[in-house]
Design a protein around this nucleic acid. Structure first.
Length: 152
DNA sequence: GCCAACGTTGGC
DNA sequence: GCCAACGTTGGC
């Protein structure tokens, strides 16, 4: 089993959206970066656990945990002309982008702020805290996962 | 809203 | 395959 961190803008999809529908899988669509796509497509597996990270908002940081319930499949939004994620260069017989499904696992008692994460020597290798990082789907090592959980 | 950093595109 | 120009991300 692997651990991950997925970024999301809470205006778009927040941990509360998961918590409000704890039995409903949420389609993690709209990843449009090749490195992130490759992680989703090749390495994210059913049963993996995911930190849900809130970006571009007032309270930036890790807000909760979700679990993967469906591995990669073609991201439906890439074929939908009405979607902001529509990609005219992708085709159903050769899809460029993938989605996975997540369900709610837990909400952290309090959000772990980005500056807190940046302050920890154990996390300096986490892509999230590295300068200029823009990866929206990133692996978290077991040690990093434990370090972060211990902050709760 | 600014802007640094990074990713992508496309001409050559 | 290089690289300038452009677009996007995301913290501040």
């Amino acid at each position: 089993m692997n651990y991950w961190l997925f970024k999301t803008e809470p205006d778009e999809c927040s941990i509360d959206d998961f918590a409000n529908a704890p039995d409903t899988p949420i389609v993690w669509e709209g990843v449009r970066n090749y490195q992130a796509r490759n992680f989703l497509r090749d390495d994210v597996a059913v049963g993996d656990e995911v930190f849900i990270y809130h970006s571009s908002c007032k309270d930036i940081g890790i807000a909760g945990i979700a679990r993967v319930v469906r591995a990669a499949y073609p991201d439906p939004s890439q074929f939908n002309p009405c979607s902001i994620y529509f990609d005219p260069k992708s085709s159903p017989d050769n899809p460029r982008w993938v989605a996975v499904d997540l369900v709610y696992a837990s909400k952290l008692v309090q959000l772990i702020r980005l500056d807190k994460l940046k302050s920890l020597a154990n996390l300096t290798e986490l892509p999230l805290v590295r300068k200029g990082n823009r990866l929206s789907v990133m692996p978290v090592t077991c040690a990093q996962w434990q370090t972060i959980l211990a902050l709760c």
